[in-house]
Amino acid sequence: YCPACDKSFKTEKAMKNHEKSKKHR
């Protein structure tokens, strides 16, 4: 789950990829 974006991810890999993504924050 990403509190900054208020989005939840089913896998930890998806969240790690999201955190590295430029769309994050």
Rank of each mutant, 00 (worst) to 15 (best):
R25L: 13
K23P: 12
H18F: 03
K20E: 13
D6T: 03
H18I: 05
C5K: 02
H24W: 01
F9Y: 08
F9Q: 12
N17S: 11
A4N: 15
P3K: 15
K7C: 08
K13G: 14
S21H: 05
K13N: 06
D6C: 03
A14D: 10
K22D: 09
K7G: 02
E19W: 09
K22N: 06
K10T: 09
F9S: 07
D6V: 03
A14W: 00
M15T: 08
A4I: 15
K7R: 07
F9I: 02
K23V: 06
K20Y: 06
E12R: 09
K23T: 08
T11A: 05
H24A: 09
S8C: 01
K23C: 06
A14Q: 03
F9P: 08
S8P: 04
K10Y: 01
A14E: 02
F9T: 09
P3N: 07
P3M: 14
P3H: 04
H24T: 09
K20S: 10
H24L: 05
K13T: 14
K16F: 05
Y1I: 15
R25K: 15
Y1D: 15
M15V: 06
M15C: 02
S8K: 13
T11W: 00
D6M: 01
E12P: 04
E19H: 08
K20V: 10
K22G: 10
Y1M: 15
F9N: 08
H18Y: 02
C2K: 00
C5L: 00
K23Q: 14
E12V: 07
E12N: 14
S21E: 08
S21Y: 05
H24M: 10
D6L: 01
T11F: 03
S21A: 10
H18V: 05
Y1R: 14
K13L: 10
E12F: 05
H18W: 01
E19N: 10
H24P: 12
T11P: 05
S8D: 06
K10H: 01
K16S: 10
K16T: 09
P3S: 15
H18P: 09
K13H: 12
Y1V: 15
E19F: 12
K22I: 05
A4E: 13
M15D: 13
S21K: 08
A14C: 03
Y1F: 07
R25W: 06
M15G: 02
K10D: 12
K13D: 13
K16C: 03
C2W: 00
S21T: 09
K23A: 14
K13C: 11
H18Q: 10
S8H: 07
K22E: 03
H18C: 04
C5Q: 01
K16A: 05
H18E: 07
K7T: 09
H24I: 04
T11E: 10
D6S: 06
E12Y: 07
F9H: 02
K10V: 01
A4M: 14
K7Y: 02
H18L: 03
E19M: 14
N17T: 13
C5E: 05
M15H: 05
C2N: 15
K23E: 08
K23N: 04
A4R: 14
A4H: 14
E12M: 06
M15W: 02
E19Y: 12
R25P: 12
K23R: 08
C2T: 05
H24Y: 02
K10P: 10
K23M: 10
K20G: 10
C2L: 03
K22L: 06
Y1P: 05
K13W: 07
K23I: 05
C2R: 00
N17P: 05
D6W: 00
S21L: 01
K13I: 13
K20T: 11
K20P: 11
C5V: 02
E19V: 11
A14Y: 11
R25Q: 15
K22A: 10
M15Y: 07
C2M: 01
H24C: 13
P3F: 15
S8L: 00
E19T: 11
K7V: 01
E19A: 12
C2Q: 00
A14P: 07
E12G: 06
A4P: 14
H18N: 04
K22F: 03
R25E: 15
C2S: 08
H24K: 05
C2I: 07
D6N: 11
N17W: 07
K20A: 12
A4L: 14
K13Q: 14
K10N: 08
C2G: 00
M15E: 05
H24G: 10
K13P: 11
H18M: 03
P3Y: 11
S8Y: 04
E12S: 11
R25G: 15
Y1T: 15
H18A: 07
M15A: 07
K22P: 11
M15F: 11
K7L: 06
H24F: 02
D6Q: 05
Y1L: 14
E12A: 12
K7A: 04
K13F: 08
E12K: 15
A14F: 02
C5I: 03
P3L: 13
K20W: 03
K10C: 03
F9D: 12
E19G: 10
K10G: 04
S21R: 08
S8I: 00
E19D: 15
S8V: 02
N17R: 13
K7I: 11
E12I: 08
K10F: 00
K7S: 06
K20F: 07
C5N: 03
A14K: 04
A4C: 08
R25F: 10
D6A: 10
T11Q: 04
P3Q: 13
D6H: 01
E19K: 13
